Simulated assay, not measured.
Amino acid sequence: MAVLRSRFHRPRASLIKRLSPLLKLGDAGNFYLQAFRAVPRALASYPKEMLRLVAELGMGAGALAVIGGTVVIVGFLTLSAGALLAVQGFNSLGDIGVEALTGFFSAFINVRIAAPVTAGIGLAATIGAGTTAQLGAMRISEEIDALETMSVDSVAYLVATRMIAGTFVALPLYALAVIMAFISSRVATTLFYGQSAGVYDHYFATFLRPIDLVWSFLQAIVMAISVMLIHTYYGYSASGGPAGVGEAVGRAVRSSLIAVVMVTLLVSLAIYGTGGNFNLAG
Results as ranks from 00 to 15, higher is better:
Gly275Cys: 03
Tyr234Asn: 09
Ala197Asn: 04
His202Cys: 12
Arg251Asp: 12
Gly241Phe: 06
His202Val: 13
Gly244Glu: 00
Val214Asn: 05
Asp201His: 10
His231Ala: 00
Tyr174Glu: 05
Ser237Thr: 14
Tyr157Thr: 11
Phe204Asp: 02
Thr167Met: 15
Thr274Gly: 13
Thr264Ala: 07
Ala220Ile: 04
Asp212Lys: 08
Gly241Gln: 08
Asp201Pro: 10
Val178Cys: 10
Leu173Trp: 08
Val267Lys: 08
Met223Pro: 02
Ala188Pro: 12
Ala224Cys: 05
Gly276Phe: 01
Tyr203Trp: 11
Val263Pro: 03
Thr161Asp: 08
Met228His: 04
Thr161Ala: 00
Thr190Tyr: 04
Gly166Phe: 05
Val263Phe: 06
Leu265Ser: 01
Val214Leu: 13
His202Leu: 15
Gly250Val: 11
Ile179Lys: 10
Ile258Tyr: 15
Gln195Met: 12
Leu171Glu: 01
Ala188Tyr: 09
Ala224Asn: 03
Thr167Arg: 03
Ala165Trp: 09
Gln219Asn: 14
Phe204Thr: 00
Leu257Met: 11
Gly194Leu: 05
Arg254Asp: 14
Phe204Trp: 09
Leu266Glu: 08
Val169Gly: 09
Ala224Arg: 01
Ala175Phe: 03
Ala197Asp: 07
His202Asp: 11
Gly273Lys: 03
Ala156Tyr: 01
Leu191Ser: 15
Val245Cys: 04
Val267Ala: 06
Val169Arg: 01
Tyr233Met: 09
Met163Asp: 05
Ser196Val: 07
Val187His: 10
Leu213His: 09
Ala156Phe: 08
Thr274Val: 10
Ile164Gln: 03
Leu265Lys: 05
Gly235Ala: 08
Trp215Val: 03
Tyr203Gln: 01
Ala252Ile: 00
Ala205Gln: 13
Val187Phe: 09
Glu247Gly: 13
Ser151Asp: 14
Ala252Lys: 03
Gly241Arg: 10
Pro210Asp: 07
Ser196Asp: 14
Ile230Gly: 04
Leu208His: 12
Phe182Asn: 10
Val222Gln: 06
Thr206Leu: 15
Gly275Asn: 15
Gly241Lys: 11
Gly194Glu: 04
Val263Asp: 00
Ile271Arg: 08
Val227Ser: 01
Thr167Leu: 10
Ala160Thr: 01
Ala188Met: 14
Val260Asn: 00
Phe182Gly: 08
Thr232Gly: 02
Leu191Val: 15
Thr274Ser: 13
Val152Asn: 09
Leu265His: 03
Gly275Phe: 01
Pro210Met: 05
Tyr234Pro: 02
Ala238Gln: 07
Ser226Tyr: 00
Ile183Phe: 07
Glu247Tyr: 13
Ile179Thr: 14
Pro242Val: 12
Phe217Gly: 02
Thr264Gln: 10
Leu257Asn: 00
His231Pro: 03
Thr264His: 00
Ala160Arg: 02
Asp212Gln: 01
Arg162Gly: 02
Gly246Val: 06
Tyr193Asn: 07
Ile230Thr: 12
Phe182Trp: 11
Gly166Ile: 11
Ala224Val: 04
Asp212Glu: 07
Ala188Cys: 14
Gly244Arg: 12
Val152Ser: 05
Pro242Ile: 12
Thr190Leu: 04
Ala248Thr: 10
Pro172Gly: 09
Pro172Ala: 06
Val159Tyr: 02
Ile230Gln: 03
Ala205Asn: 12
Arg254Ser: 15
Leu158Cys: 13
Val227Ile: 15
Arg254Asn: 15
Ile271Phe: 02
Thr264Leu: 05
Leu176Met: 13
Ala220Arg: 03
Ala181Pro: 04
Phe168Ile: 15
Val222Trp: 00
Tyr174Ala: 10
Leu266Cys: 10
Phe182Pro: 06
Ile271Trp: 02
Tyr272Met: 06
